[in-house]
């Protein structure tokens, strides 16, 4: 009897799964954000990451946020932002956006010199717009537009495509080359960039905590929407609206 009911439940489960797969595959929702075939694994990793964050990462970021005066934080942010312009230029060029790539190179030139090794973002003051590009976006522009969602410890949310993109980005990141001779200095810089990113996210923690019915799903869907927005450079096509 129990065996029978489990089989039935399993069938019902498969039925639901099939229904949702069909629903996701429908043309109206082809763009939808529910691509999470590895949800079980991802939720486990999410829990691991939440634990790590609570005991180690968040306290460090909070301490950094607390002790670092604003001008220093701005300098650190601008410094990494300047290095990121190498990645922006490269990926804009790979996506065929040559004029944007030109802007990125101009920014890099100005900020590395007048901006004293990128510590000041003079280029933005001069009206050269800052972009946000990476190899994951380039792959999407090249046609890999839907990719399964992954949740990694430390790295956090990434799709399979964006995980690959991140590896390529790491290889093209000048931080890894210019400081090749001093492993300690390089590692400190990489760690600092992680802490800087985490510290910037501190104010959103409370909002996510309070807003989400299911924190994992909230973070996943926010990440996927955010990536979609970046891929379309801030102007993604509208999703279907039930009221129309």
């Amino acid at each position: 009897m129990t065996g029978k009911s489990t089989t039935w439940k399993r069938r019902a489960g498969i039925g639901c799964l099939a229904a949702s797969v069909i629903a996701l595959g429908g043309p109206a929702l082809a763009d939808d954000v529910g691509h999470d075939p590895l949800e079980g694994f991802n939720r486990a990793m999410f829990a691991v990451n939440e634990g790590l964050d609570t005991v180690a990462i968040k306290p460090v970021a909070q301490a950094y946020d607390f002790v670092t005066p604003l001008p220093v934080r701005v300098g650190v942010g601008d410094f990494f932002g300047n290095i990121a312009d190498v990645r922006n230029a490269l990926n804009n060029a790979l996506q065929g956006k040559l004029s944007d790539a030109g802007t990125d190179l101009g920014r890099l030139l100005i900020n590395s010199t007048i901006g004293i090794f990128g510590l000041f973002d003079v280029a933005s003051e001069l009206g050269l717009e800052k972009h946000d590009e990476d190899f994951g976006q380039t792959l999407a522009v090249w046609g890999w537009d839907n990719s399964s969602f992954m949740f990694w410890p430390l790295l956090g949310p990434r799709t399979v495509r964006d995980t690959g993109g991140w590896v390529v980005d790491a290889y093209t990141d000048p931080t890894w080359y210019t400081l090749n001779k001093s492993v300690a200095a390089r590692n400190s810089l990489v760690a600092l960039s992680f802490v800087d990113v985490r510290a910037a996210l501190l104010p959103t923690d409370k909002v996510v905590e309070e807003a989400a019915l299911d924190k994992y799903a909230y973070v996943r869907d926010a990440y996927l929407q955010r990536r979609r927005n970046l891929i379309f450079d801030g102007r993604p096509p509208r999703l279907e609206d039930v009221m129309d």
Binding site: G34, A212, A217, D221, A222, Q225, N229
Partner: peptide, 14 residues
């Protein structure tokens, strides 16, 4: 780029 509204769609669906 994150809609504060449609970000709930999956959770509501659940």
């Amino acid at each position: 780029g994150i809609s504060l509204v449609t970000n709930y769609r999956d959770q509501f669906g659940q």
